[in-house]
């Protein structure tokens, strides 16, 4: 494959990393396809939520449970972590040594974990007001969707840790590079999903 050939657009490694870039050709494309399938998953859960929103079963509704302030903080944290993963990816592409990549990755993970922390705090607060999934169809749909996203974010952090472990063990080899690209794709994807959740679940719920 020649370096001038058009690759998948967006996140890529560039010709400085020829062998890793060749691998990314298939592996990152495959990951994009996987994300498409995952997007269907989230899309359907969002649709289910929209259908179920009126079914509060006499229990607490969106206005009783959602607090925009902490949702706003969460959104900012997640967006910032996406920016950080973007920097991490740029460092991977253009720097010879992995130091900056690691730093930005750690920052992204810290921000994402803070997001998860806030989210758990929200859930507990909701539960305190009777907002548990068993209370109504509305809350069931909420808890099927939103924590799944949080779980994805936590899994992405775990994956980040695993990549750091590989880096420590093998240095910046092709495996680490390609994994980093895929992780970045996942990270941005989760950000997009959150935008969907933010608008549909929270803003839509309060509207």
């Amino acid at each position: 494959m020649s370096a001038t050939q058009t690759r998948h657009p967006g996140l890529n490694l560039g010709s400085n990393h020829q062998s890793a870039d060749d691998r990314a050709e298939t592996e990152v494309f495959g990951f994009w396809v996987f994300m498409m399938s995952d997007a269907i998953l989230f899309g359907l859960l969002m649709a289910t939520y929209v259908v179920m929103r009126p079914n509060t079963n006499g229990g607490p509704g969106p206005h009783d449970l959602f607090e925009l302030k902490s949702i706003f903080i969460e959104t900012m944290l997640l967006l910032a972590s996406s920016v950080a993963i973007g920097f991490s990816h740029l460092a991977l592409k253009h720097e010879d040594r992995p130091t900056k990549m690691v730093i930005w990755l750690v920052v992204a993970m810290a921000l994402a974990l803070a997001f998860v922390g806030f989210e758990i705090h929200d859930f507990l607060k909701m539960a305190g007001k009777g907002g548990v999934p068993q209370a109504s169809g509305f809350l069931s749909a909420f808890f099927a969707l939103v924590p799944l996203h949080g779980l994805h974010v936590s899994a992405a952090c775990l994956w980040g840790l695993a990549i750091l472990g590989q880096l420590a063990r093998y240095g910046l080899d092709d495996g680490v590079k390609v994994s980093m690209v895929r992780l970045a794709v996942l990270w941005h994807f989760l950000d997009l999903v959150w935008i969907g959740i933010f608008s549909l679940v929270y803003i839509g719920g309060l509207a």
Binding site: N55, T56, Q134, A135, S136, S140, A144
Partner: peptide, 12 residues
Amino acid sequence: DFHLFTNGGGGN
């Protein structure tokens, strides 16, 4: 005990 598809509890 979610209520996504149940008869009662706001399931559908």
